[in-house]
Design a binder for these strands. Structure first.
Length: 637
RNA sequence: GCCCACAUAGCUCAGUAGGUAGAGUACUUGCAUGGUAAGCAAGAGGUCACCGGUUCAAUUCCGGUUGUGGGCUCCA
């Protein structure tokens, strides 16, 4: 192992493995010194003044602002937390403690149950440690030696980790005060840069993420170089909470969850307006692109689910029932229903591709702990469609579907990323079929020149898939659209078309959704807009506020007039001052507020107050109508 | 399902060292009739999630159930 020495301003020499990253080497040319500070890959000795140091020759400076810099910073923070926990709770055993998107966590195993009070104590201890500016020391051991080291200390998780490392690898350690951890690094040079510390929550987590393993206690936290940055981050979290779809769903009276139906959402009148607008848009867009629509039953005979493979692969998630002593199941997916429609008659190759959409209500028994507002429910409507294609049409249809998804997301201004999921362990079909299907998806993605992440083993049991991941208010991503290529169902159900040569052949099936589910999509949409729906989706598009009771009659006349034009209008005729009513309408995120009094009535005017823009002055009623209708037509905002 | 926490008025929350509860807001009524983010007053509203236990007495303490929140696992 080649070591590099860095001579620090005080003359002390620090050794690093060649190519390893140390956090922050900055050159202070004014003092003629190179000193070790924030994050660098070291490739040659640095001593005193090293002005010629640059990207290729010696080191790369990594700053907190860089992704890599944050990782290093938070990784060291995790070690600081571990040391603090060790100081306060000496019996603790350590699992793993990585950096994550907005901070870090460490998994601990201890009899003691951490409480929020403990978090404060740990936080204080961390601050103390950080201030002491401990230097992190890296060293290595042979595998056997390392195993012995952790066995002696009864650190079974570390032992487990090392045992799963490749045989001949040398094991690296980082020592921070009294805490020595198995760790690949890199780390900060010392702890003094960690100035702002906040521990956020305690959670359970399985060792190695496997539910058959023991449950550890995980502490999440985040740290920054400056107090101000931490405060900003916490402020952002608070702001995000304000747009939580569960909170807005209640405040805007869109939907509710009831104890009587955990995971089964109730849609209120206003929520139904949004939902129906979305569905209308969906239907229109699909009609344009050559889709037809079908509707299949919610409850179907159990035999069907045996045939489809759901019984073997999905039974735990299915709700079962009995009719006339026969076993039935409530559908968890729409595909078997669609296939029965396909099978109801003979198809010619000339008919393909068939594109059948179905807004299909499915029920799935999700684990109680997994439920989350509208994002994860037990009954939801998929904006499903099944395409029956000739093998030669697959790629073209996949490309068209990707385009459809992209076009529709654009209307809402969504950013998304795509993930490709490959064959899972418990799945049907031959290796060859899976390879063909997976390659089909990859080809389509490559044709569109789209970047994607690969999730090995995450596909559906009948085929690989690409997923469209959309973000919620706090950056959690949710799978919405999905495109799944399926060679299995057609075979299982023995569906066919009659080809040119009069032979019966097997079509290929594409399962796909764009919104994913109406429920989840609405949840994301509420957070995306923070409740401020664009006019075409807004449950109430305008509220009429008469200045005094005297003008109520006129207000209702005006409401009727606007309603007849197709605008969703409410009248706030309560005996309150304008200011009060404006406030209410603002809180409801109504796009347009129309104030009317004597002046407006006399001249057929409305005083328009626009959401986020305030008082717009007066305009002719007809002018207002045209403006709103135009905005509805254009959808995009 | 697992770990931890929580559950009081429609909503947001206070409270009771064990003696059946309170604010703000929303709601109803009355006064006020108003010009761009909260007028004034009164009234109504609660088996303190549910089931057990301890106790003379439980919303409060203990156990369980259900639900919710944050994670883990799983997923549209």
């Amino acid at each position: 192992m080649e070591m590099i020495s860095i001579t620090l301003p005080d003359g002390s020499v620090k050794k690093h493995e060649k190519g390893s990253t140390v956090y922050d080497i900055t050159k202070d040319i004014s003092k003629g010194l190179a000193r070790e500070a924030v994050g660098a890959v070291v490739n040659e000795d640095i001593r005193g003044m090293q002005e010629e140091v640059n990207e290729d020759s010696t080191f790369r400076v990594v700053k907190f602002e860089d992704k890599e810099g944050k990782e290093i910073f938070w990784h060291t923070s995790a070690h600081i937390m571990a040391l603090a926990v060790q100081n306060l709770f000496p019996d603790v055993k350590f699992a793993i403690g990585p950096a994550i998107d907005n901070g870090f966590y460490y998994d601990f195993d201890t009899e003691h149950r951490f409480t929020p009070k403990d978090l404060e104590k740990i936080e204080d201890e961390m601050k103390r440690i950080a201030k002491e500016a401990h230097v992190l020391e890296r060293f290595t051991m042979e595998r056997d030696e390392a195993l012995e080291y952790f066995k002696e200390r009864d650190e079974k998780y570390k032992v487990d980790l090392i045992e799963n490392f490749p045989e001949d690898e040398e094991i690296s350690f980082y020592k921070l005060g009294e805490f020595t951890d198995l760790c690949a690094g890199p780390h900060l040079y010392d702890t003094k840069k960690v100035k702002a510390i906040k521990l956020l929550s305690i959670a359970g987590a399985y060792w190695r993420g496997d539910e058959n393993n023991e449950m550890l206690q995980r502490i999440y936290g985040t740290t920054y170089e400056k107090k101000k940055d931490l405060e900003e981050y916490l402020h952002r979290l608070e702001e995000a909470e304000k747009r939580d779809h569960r909170k807005l769903g209640r405040e805007l009276d869109l939907f509710s969850m009831q104890e009587e139906g955990p995971g089964f959402p109730f849609f209120h009148p206003k929520g139904m307006i949004v939902r129906n607008e979305l569905e209308d848009y969906w239907k229109e867009e699909h009609r344009k692109r050559g889709y037809d629509e079908i509707k299949t039953p919610l409850i179907l005979n159990e035999k069907l689910w045996h045939e489809s493979g759901h019984w073997d692969h999905y039974k735990e998630n299915m709700y079962l029932t009995k009719i006339d002593d026969e076993d039935y199941a409530i559908k968890p997916m729409n595909c078997p229903g669609s296939i029965l429609v396909y099978k109801s008659k003979l198809h010619s190759y000339r008919d393909l591709p068939l594109r059948w959409g179905e807004l299909g209500l499915v029920h799935r028994h999700e684990l109680s702990g997994a439920l989350h507002g509208l994002m994860r429910v037990r009954s939801f409507t998929q904006d499903d469609a099944h395409l029956y294609t000739l093998p030669s049409q697959i790629k073209d249809e996949l490309v068209k579907t990707i385009e459809l998804a992209d076009d529709m997301y654009k209307v809402f201004g969504f950013k998304y990323h795509i993930e490709l999921s490959t064959r899972p362990e418990n799945s049907m079909g031959s290796e060859e079929q899976w390879e063909m299907a997976t390659n089909g998806l990859i080809e389509a993605l490559e044709e569109k020149e789209i970047d994607y992440i690969v999730n090995e083993g995450d596909g559906a049991f009948y085929g690989p898939k690409i997923d469209f991941q959309l973000e919620d208010a706090i950056g959690r991503t949710w799978q919405c659209g999905t495109i799944q290529l399926d060679f299995q169902m057609p075979e299982r159900f023995d569906i066919s078309y009659v080809d040119k040569d009069n032979e019966r052949k097997r079509p290929v099936m594409i399962h796909r959704t764009i919104f994913g589910s109406m429920e989840r999509f609405m949840g994301i949409l509420i957070e995306h807009y923070a409740g401020k729906f664009p006019v075409w989706l807004a449950p109430v598009q305008a509220t009429i506020l008469p200045i005094s009771d005297k003008f109520n009659d006129y207000a209702y006349e005006l409401q009727k007039k606007l309603k007849d034009k197709g605008i969703r209008v409410e009248v706030d005729s309560r005996s309150e001052k304008v200011g009060y009513k404006i406030r209410e309408a603002r809180l409801q995120r109504v796009p347009y507020i129309l104030v009317i009094g004597e002046k407006e009535i006399e001249n057929n005017l409305v005083s328009v107050n626009k959401r986020d823009h305030g008082d717009q002055g007066q305009m002719k009623t007809e002018e207002f109508v045209d403006m709103v209708l135009e905005e509805i037509k254009n959808k995009r905002q």
